[in-house]
């Protein structure tokens, strides 16, 4: 397959996955904001979304005040914000457009109609029934695109690069959500029990509420939540699950120069595979997740270098 085609496929699926996870994060933040709390605490939660995406400066250029409405406008439909849902879906669609001959007609039609529906509506129209409905729409569309991909596409190299993009992006996003929410929600020693509703909302944001119940059959405990999202081998949004898929797909597309990237992915996978949550927490969850995200970033660069970036660009960069 053409390197450029693989590049478009990889980024197409990354942007769609990113949009879905952003919708999930905004949704959980929206739900948490309905639990009684001080205005300051509520705005703090909204600002966390901005911080999480490293958008502090871009946000400050447009808005002087942090509140739910401003953050939602900025993250939902602002075309100038490269990380907004609008921008992610646009980039997903643009990448698909460039390779519409490689993806199936159903995939293209699903992606294109998603974009056309989104583009036709203003922020007010999108959130007319409350933002929750819109986040649900994004999640459903992303599921639809993924479903059509799995249901119609030949499982060849193109499919492997699509899966690589999805899983790498999801690993990063799950780690981010956990990182930011764990610190907001983890009770200080003296405060006693954690907030059932808040933890429930976080679990739901990664579709893990029922999984938690099934797995632990116990009240929600922050450390178990971390264990579930990092170490559960069979839950589609856990770090371990994502890494397993990354390694598998990397093995399938391997070429002469991809050995080192595969080794690093395999090493990261094995470390998580045999990790214990107690050790991770003792080491410090934030440090652990930061290191994890750095290594995911490094894997993304490795994949670009080994498969996606045209040779001439590399030689030019080297020169």
């Amino acid at each position: 397959m053409l390197s450029r085609t693989a590049d478009h496929l990889f980024w197409m699926s990354r942007y769609i996955e990113r949009a879905e996870n952003l919708a999930r994060l905004l949704d959980v933040t929206w739900q948490m904001s309905m639990v009684p709390q001080s205005l300051e605490a509520a705005n703090q939660n909204w600002y966390a979304v901005i911080v999480l995406n490293s958008l502090e400066e871009a946000f400050a250029r447009k808005y002087s005040e942090v509140n739910a409405d401003n953050v939602l406008r900025f993250m939902v439909s602002d075309p100038d914000n490269p990380a907004s849902l609008f921008s992610c879906l646009r980039m997903g669609r643009e990448n698909a457009h460039a390779v519409r001959g490689t993806i199936t007609a159903e995939m293209w039609e699903t992606l294109n109609s998603t974009w056309l529906e989104l583009r036709a509506q203003s922020y007010e129209q999108l959130t007319a029934n409350g933002p929750g409905d819109f986040f649900e729409w994004v999640k459903i569309k992303s599921s639809l695109i993924r479903g059509v991909t799995i249901g119609t596409m030949l499982q060849d190299e193109a499919y492997n690069f699509i899966r690589l993009g999805t899983l790498l992006e999801r690993a990063d996003n799950t780690a981010r959500i956990l990182d930011v929410k764990y610190h907001v929600l983890k009770p200080k020693e003296e405060e006693g029990t954690s907030d059932f509703y808040q933890w429930g909302a976080l679990l739901r944001s990664v579709s893990a509420f029922e999984v938690y119940r099934k797995t632990y059959r116990a009240v929600i405990n922050p450390d178990r939540v971390a264990e579930l999202l990092i170490l559960q081998p069979d839950m589609p949004r856990s770090l371990l699950f994502c890494l397993k898929g990354v390694v598998k797909n990397l093995e399938l597309v391997a070429n002469d120069q991809s050995g080192e990237t595969l080794r690093r992915a395999g090493q990261l996978f094995c470390e998580i595979r045999y990790a214990r949550i107690e050790d991770i927490l003792e080491h410090g969850l934030h440090e652990y997740l930061t290191d994890f995200m750095d290594r995911i970033y490094d894997l993304g660069n490795g994949i670009s270098r080994d498969f996606l970036v045209p040779v001439s660009t590399q030689t030019q960069e080297a020169a």
């Binding site: 397959m1 053409l2 390197s3 450029r4 001959g101 597309v253 045209p310």
Partner: peptide, 21 residues
Amino acid sequence: ELVEGRDLFVKDDTVYMRTTQ
């Protein structure tokens, strides 16, 4: 394959496309 100019290069009077392999 649908290629753009940047996907192709010429070496020893032969045209090649850049692929993942």
